[in-house]
């Protein structure tokens, strides 16, 4: 089930790059890059950390569409 995210959008709004984002939530730049590309679905902990950093709910950033 594909997980859609708006991480890149939020990151751009706040003017931070992938390396900084990774440092802020305690993961590598590769992980942020893979999440943004949709290649990796983050753990619940990481999703919450990212959402808390942007001060929004997890659903604002991550969402999935049911396959018909």
């Amino acid at each position: 089930m594909p997980l859609y995210n708006r991480l890149k959008e939020y990151r751009a709004k706040n003017g931070i790059n992938q390396s900084e984002m990774g440092r802020l939530v305690g993961v590598s730049r590769q992980t942020i890059s893979q999440i943004e590309r949709g290649d990796y679905s983050p753990s619940v902990v990481l999703a919450i950390k990212i959402a808390r950093y942007f001060n929004v709910s997890v659903e604002d950033i991550f969402d999935f569409k049911e396959e018909e």
Partner: peptide, 8 residues
């Protein structure tokens, strides 16, 4: 490795 790197 962190979580995504581990999965990879």
């Amino acid at each position: 490795a962190d979580e995504a790197q581990k999965e990879l």
